[in-house]
Design a binder for these strands. Structure first.
Lengths: 130, 130
DNA sequence: CTATGTGCAAAATTTTTGCAAGCTT
DNA sequence: AAGCTTGCAAAAATTTTGCACATAG
């Protein structure tokens, strides 16, 4: 059902190739270098489709617009509250917690998102000087 | 620094008294019953201030506007992808993971947010009939 | 050929802000 | 009085959509 399109391919590639977690506007800027007349609407449409298809992951960070992560494997995020950078952390969450959830509430977990808010190494250092 | 105001008190009370996780628009509707001429801007301003003050917690849910949680103790959320309801789950995350994060990256965790996406009990039942 | 994808522009949503007047302390 | 708050309305910022044309399968 999802056809191939130069726009979608380029968008996906931009996200996968970036080590950052890009917002729609950043993706737009990047893709425009290759397809100058692409429209923002196309970016949003494809971001949504790609996220639904499981090709990318949408992240929600307090206060800012959605970011997209080209890594879809189970991993978590460390978000620095000072500089705003997002770091990945690869480690599985405890499956036993999900078992307890299922047992007590009947809720069937399909995905888990763990995010840590705090201060990155760099920002801890710099805040000591102020 | 934070003064007392009828508006802010009412907003906070609305959130604390609700077992749901309200969005700004819902808070607006509720508070308007008590203070008919309150403005949406005031709702947003206070929601942000209260969240910063740690009185409430802002939740980010994929695709929808921010929700606010009157329970600020460490707990997690189960989000049903079908009906959209949000359930609370009280259990601590593994402190050992944070120790490993600190050791490897130097990131200092101040808060953690774990959210589970899946199907609630009711929706699992109803989807079997379709 | 048919259904999906695109660019463009307008619109919808959600959130923020400037300002003059009102409260708190 | 000084400074935080508020209501109002305008503006920003972000995301979605309608439509006619282009393109993939």
């Amino acid at each position: 059902m999802l056809r191939k399109s130069k726009q979608r391919d380029t968008i996906l590639r931009a996200i996968k190739n970036s080590s950052n977690h890009l917002g729609a506007d950043r993706v737009y800027d990047l893709v425009k270098k290759e397809i100058p007349n692409i429209s923002l609407g196309t970016i949003y449409r494809n971001l949504k489709l790609l996220a639904q298809a499981g090709e990318i992951r949408e992240l929600e960070i307090p206060g800012i617009s959605s970011r997209f992560d080209g890594t879809t494997s189970n991993h978590h995020h460390l978000i620095c509250e000072k500089c705003g950078r997002i770091f990945d952390w690869d480690e599985l969450t405890d499956p036993a917690m999900e078992a307890r959830i299922a047992k007590k509430t009947g809720f069937k977990v399909k995905a888990r998102y763990l995010k840590f808010i705090g201060l990155c190494y760099d920002c801890q250092k710099s805040s000591k000087n102020s």
